[in-house]
Structures are given as structure tokens and as C-alpha cells.
Write a protein that binds this DNA or RNA. Sequence first.
DNA 1: GTCTATAAGATGATAGAC
DNA 2: GTCTATCATCTTATAGAC
Lengths: 196, 196
Amino acid sequence: MPRSPDTSGTTDQLLDVAQELAQTRGYNAFSYRDLAERVGIRSASIHHHFPAKGDLGRALVARYRDRFSDALRRIGAGTGDAPAKLAAYVDLFRATYEHGGRLCLGGMFAADLPTLPTEVQEQVRGFYADNEAWLTRLLDAGRRASQLHFEGAPRDAAAALLDGLEGALLAARAHGSSARFARASRWLLLSVGARS
Amino acid sequence: MPRSPDTSGTTDQLLDVAQELAQTRGYNAFSYRDLAERVGIRSASIHHHFPAKGDLGRALVARYRDRFSDALRRIGAGTGDAPAKLAAYVDLFRATYEHGGRLCLGGMFAADLPTLPTEVQEQVRGFYADNEAWLTRLLDAGRRASQLHFEGAPRDAAAALLDGLEGALLAARAHGSSARFARASRWLLLSVGARS
DNA sequence: GTCTATAAGATGATAGAC
DNA sequence: GTCTATCATCTTATAGAC
């Protein structure tokens, strides 16, 4: 009988390693050779899985975006109130930093944007759109339910929240401090009136 | 009689062009050849001004940090109240985006951090420290004077503010929209009770 | 201070054998 | 699906002439 989806296939292994390098060093600071050495095959073999580096980049953001959307759906379907869901959202970013000091792939690729193939650029914009839309809905509903308290448009607060978290990852890694992330993110929650 | 400091010397020209490329594409996505073509000399000649790329990187952040500190001093020495000074601070970042969709060099190099020579890494951390210290003082004084209104430690608000602005530049460029920056930054000002 | 010439190594990529 | 071999190009960097 067939096993559950073999997640250790070479393609997945390549994606896993490439994602780590992309989140840590950025799109332009890792090579097929870097991947090859860590996965244990020759760099030429990678082209069988991803003919061009742009194909790898596209697959990378597409998968990241899918997984992130899944996480948002899981949080949204949960039983907690808006502050709890917001805390769970923040925790997604905290976990990213704890995972070897990684940045959000969306944020990292946003920094690399003009150097990326256009299809990858579009995926990055999609990642931002996903997050802003989800956050806007959560903030709006939370305020209507008097669970959150802030001034201004939910859409603006959502943008500021996402940007704050992306920036907090950047700063936390620069400081080499998870506490630095915690301080900035705690304040963000406070600023939308999410008492915890 | 000698002219005022010749700012169009080759070294300065190289720094100017390198800064633009660094803010736009990142440290690893521009080469001595890119600089050479734009400045109109041969790439080998650049090594006379900056023997290794790390020297260029260090000079780049050092100058950026100096200029930024000057701007902070100017704002701090101004006559306005805390909300006005905060708005002027935000405007520094807005102007960066308007200047050809550039990111903050500090934020961009924070994204490139692990690929940077260690001396450059230290300068980047220094940039963050400069900004956090300056913002902390401003926020603290502003709240004591009842010109700003927010909860939590000024140091945490300062971190969140800086991170929000770095992230807002990233997002604005991804969206190709100065309005996107305006929305996020306006909300940030609102969140510290800076009525404008 | 800028040039030509040159180097060693990296990079993304292809062809073709196994 | 992975390998060896090979490629053109790019990248940082040096030596030495002008």
C-alpha cells in the first residue's frame, strides 16, 4: 500500500533547502551549487527539477503563499476572539524568527523585488495582498465586536500591522534578539487595543 | 580661491551610484561593472577608490548613517512639537521612497545582513541603534509633554515605529504605490496619538 | 587616477551518457 | 533522475603601463 505523500523527494528537499537559504540570505545570495552541496546531488541535476532559477523562485513563493494561506484559514476558523487570532497571526512571524533567525520569505523577496523574474514578483505581490485582505477583515470584525479598539480604517491598520511585523523580523535578526521582535510585536497588538 | 567641497569627485560619484543600486537592488545584486558603466570608468579603476567591495559597503553605510544622524539632529533642533518632529521623521522615509522607489539602506542591508562583511554588519546595527535611541527620546519627551498619547514603553513604541517604516517602504515598493506608504505611516502616527 | 591585461573562481545553464 | 563534461558570462581582484 502506498505511503502518504513522500515529502522527502528530491524536489521537496530542494525546495526546503532553497527556502531556508532564500529566507536567510535572499534570492541573489544562494546558488544551485549551494543547494547541490546541501542536498547531496550535483548542481546540474537541479535543472531537471527547476530548469531555470526563476522556476525555483516561483515554486518557492507559490508554496510559501499556499502554506501561509492555510495557516490564515486555520486561525480564522479557530474558536478564539479577534485578539486571540491576532496573537496567533503574530506568532506565525515569531515562529519564523525562532526557526533559525529566518525572515518572512515575502518580506525578503520584497527587498529583492526588482531583481526577480516578473512571475515571482507577482507572487510576492499576491502574498502581500493575501495578508492585507485577511488582516483587514479580522481587524474590522474585531472592532465591530468591541474586541479591538483603534482609530482609522481597518485597511490602514492592516497595512501597518503587516509592515510592522516584516520590519520587526528584519530588526530582530539585525539585533540577534528574539526579545527585540517580542517588544515591537507586543506594541503592535497594544496599538489595536488587543488586551492580552 | 578653492571651491566648496568638490562633491563630484569620482569617489563621491561612485558612492552616489552605489548607494542608489544598494537601496534598489541590495548589496549582492550590483557589481563593480554596474558602477563602472554608470560612472564612466573601467571596473578595475574602482579598486583604486575601494580596494574590496567590503570597503565600499562600509563607506556606504557609514556615510548613510552620518547623513541620517545629521537629519535627526536637524529635526531635533527644530522648533516644532513632538508630533511635528515625528511627522518630519516619517517624511525622511517618505522622501526615500519618492526618490526612485528606494528602500532605506539600513533596512535593505538588514535584509542582506548575513552576506555582509562583519564591519558592515556592525554599521547596520549602529544605524538601528541610532534611530531607536533618537525615537525613544522623542516619544518619551512627547508623552511627558502630553503631545503624544500611547501605552507601553517609549522604547517599544520606538522599535515598532522604526520597524513599521522599514516595512512600509518594502510594501510600498512591492505595490508600486506611494499611497500604500502614506496609509501605513499615517496609521503609525495615529497610533502614538500624534494628531495632525 | 585611470587604463589594459589577466587571473581564479563562481554562476546559471546545456548536451549527452548511464 | 543523476551524472560528467563543457560553456559563456560575470565577479572580484591584482599587476603593471601611462
